[in-house]
Amino acid sequence: MTSGVYRRYAPAERRRRMVALLRKRRSVTIAELEEQFGVSAMTARRDLAMLETRGLVSRTWGGATMPSPVSSEQPFAERRDQDAETKRRIADIALRMIEPHETVIVDGSTTAWFLIERIVGEQLPCTIITNSLAVMELAADAGPQVQLVAVGGLLRPSSRSFVGPATIRGLGELYADRAFLSVHGIGPDGAMTDPDPLEAEVKQAILGQSKEAVLLVQQPKFGAIAQNRIAALADVSHAVGVDLEDDAVAVLADAGVQLHRDAA
């Protein structure tokens, strides 16, 4: 530790300031953190390890950098058409988890859209809560057996979903038996992330408004990192996925998440 002038912070505040420093500089060394915060190299490394488990930094030899963000978001229609058959298989499995007359919340993900397509096709009686304009359009003509609760707000054209304070307030007034959502990335530590802070905020709210949260997941999500943390994998109780590799299955198991998958 250096003998320079520094101010001592509580651990949580120190780590918050470390992240702010990283966002400004893009990379820092252990020696710089020692100098900046007046801590030992061991404490700096321990702080970085904790921040890495939350998906906020990526440790390097002798320091840390900001995580590499995922690429810019594609329009909803393009993403929906990618790996459509895999998403349909996931939707088939997720459908079997829903009991008649249950209330479900779904996010604005394309995989959730395929689940609603299955619900409408099967004429499953249920109530659907969503912030997704695409899901609203799909469910609006489903008939009287499907009740639609549309949560509005600020529309993001690229995702065709509503976000922002009004959306969060609306979700806070509702509750469901199950929530179904997908994420852009899952780090090795199990941190679920999204490139858009408003989308991440909505997904956080959805997780808190149901008895059970179900993650709809594909193999490419594992190892991808976006800049906004949603929650830890441990905050979901179930996951639905197909063709997952052993490492991905292990990440889910380590988080205590029950995996549902077909026999393919």
Rank of each mutant, 00 (worst) to 15 (best):
V39Q: 03
Q74D: 06
E32L: 11
L56P: 03
A64K: 00
V120R: 03
T65H: 01
A41P: 05
S27A: 14
T65I: 10
L56I: 05
D47C: 04
L56T: 02
A49C: 03
T43Y: 03
T53L: 10
A44W: 05
M42I: 13
K87F: 08
R23F: 13
T111V: 12
R88P: 03
T86S: 12
V28Q: 00
V106G: 13
F76H: 01
S68I: 10
V120C: 02
F37L: 04
V106E: 10
G121S: 04
G38I: 04
T103P: 14
I105E: 09
S72W: 13
P100L: 12
T53E: 15
R23G: 14
L21V: 04
L22A: 02
V57C: 05
I116D: 02
R96N: 15
L115I: 04
I93P: 03
G38A: 08
E102Q: 15
T110S: 09
Q36G: 01
A44S: 12
R118D: 08
E78Y: 07
E73A: 10
A112R: 09
A20M: 14
R59F: 08
R26V: 10
L124T: 03
T65Y: 03
A84Q: 09
T110R: 01
I119Y: 04
I30N: 00
R54M: 14
Q82D: 07
Q36N: 06
R45V: 02
S27K: 09
A77E: 06
V70I: 08
G108T: 07
L115R: 05
P69R: 03
E122C: 12
I30E: 02
M66V: 11
E78Q: 12
S27I: 00
G55L: 11
A84K: 09
T103W: 15
L33F: 03
L95A: 13
V28A: 10
I93V: 15
D83R: 14
K24G: 06
Q82N: 08
M42K: 12
T65M: 06
W61N: 11
A84D: 07
A84P: 03
K87W: 06
Q123W: 04
Q82P: 00
R118I: 02
D81I: 00
M42V: 14
L48Q: 00
D47T: 01
P75H: 01
I98P: 07
S71G: 14
Q123C: 09
R89M: 04
V104W: 07
A31N: 07
E99L: 14
L56W: 09
A64C: 05
F114M: 05
W61Q: 11
R54Y: 12
E99I: 12
F76Y: 08
E73Y: 09
T29M: 01
E52Q: 13
H101R: 15
E102H: 13
A94G: 10
D92K: 12
E122H: 14
A64N: 02
E34P: 05
H101D: 15
E34I: 07
S72L: 13
D83G: 03
V57D: 01
E73K: 10
M50S: 13
G38S: 07
Q74E: 11
